[in-house]
């Protein structure tokens, strides 16, 4: 009994492995309809990162921004206080700036992962990585208001890992695959729709998107323009990618 099943499974596996490139060329209609021509893909059995004009544009943007934000110096802030007759120029301390710069680069790398991956679980992982590095950018700031907002954002981040990974797990349980190329061809059903909604909620929370922007607006009062700009970039890039992902799943 067991042997028979094993041979069947292997056959199926072999078949898929051999015809993978064919499947990808013919069947990726959903992705082609959304992104344009598929320029290339790397077949790692099931996880297939693919390159489209859309992902190329995103990667180019993210790389350019990351490089420029990483080489920029933090700006000076002129501060005046009551009962004082001087204008102070304040900026980020060197040690703090180094750490935040590192976090900025990490966030950029995670974003590249977000926009290129062809596997929804990896997508979820990279999105949470951007969230973590976003908080890391704000961890060294010595401002109670900013830290308070960052803490609230952190709470949302942790809670939202539930819908994010939960949605992925629901889709996996329902379809048996995590690969976007395969999922794009499957017909949608109620459970996949629930999974998609959960995925959207999760990504919205992790990327500090629309309803959770309030904490973000508080957070960006901190000093250090290049690092803070990275956070805005990351949340908008995550949003652009999640639109694509949800449309492919549907």
């Amino acid at each position: 009994m067991e042997e028979r099943n094993l041979t069947i499974d292997l056959d199926l596996f072999d078949n898929i492995y051999r015809n993978l490139s064919v499947i990808w060329c013919i069947k990726m209609n959903d992705i082609v309809d959304i992104n344009g021509l598929i320029i290339g893909h790397f077949p790692f059995v099931d996880i297939v990162p693919y390159i489209t004009p859309f992902s190329l544009a995103l990667v180019a943007t993210i790389v350019t921004f990351t490089v420029f934000l990483a080489i920029s110096n933090p700006e000076y802030r002129s501060i005046t206080r009551f009962k004082e007759d001087v204008v102070r120029k304040e900026t980020v301390e060197k040690k703090e700036a180094r750490f935040r710069r590192f976090m900025t680069i990490l966030c950029g790398v995670a974003l590249i992962g977000v926009v290129t991956t062809g596997d929804i679980f990896n997508f979820a992982l990279f999105v949470s990585l951007t969230g973590i590095s976003n908080i890391g950018i704000f961890a060294g700031i010595k401002d109670t208001h900013v830290l308070d907002a960052a803490f609230q954002y952190g709470l949302v981040l942790m809670i939202c890992s539930l819908p994010l990974f939960g949605g992925v797990a629901l889709i996996l349980a329902n379809t048996g695959t995590l690969s976007l190329g395969v999922l794009g061809n499957l017909p949608s059903n109620q459970i996949i729709n629930v999974g998609r909604t959960l995925l959207l909620i999760g990504a919205v929370g992790e990327g500090a998107l629309a309803p959770f922007f309030a904490t973000k607006v508080e957070m960006i009062r901190a000093k250090g323009a290049p690092f803070i700009n990275m956070m805005h970039l990351s949340s908008l890039m995550v949003f652009t990618r999640i639109i694509e992902l949800l449309l492919i799943l549907g």
Binding site: I34, F54, L236, M237, E244
Partner: peptide
């Protein structure tokens, strides 16, 4: 793809 233009819009915001 229209999504690329949406991306451009997002980058404009950034």
């Amino acid at each position: 793809s229209f999504l690329i233009i949406i991306m451009c819009y997002a980058v404009h915001k950034v």
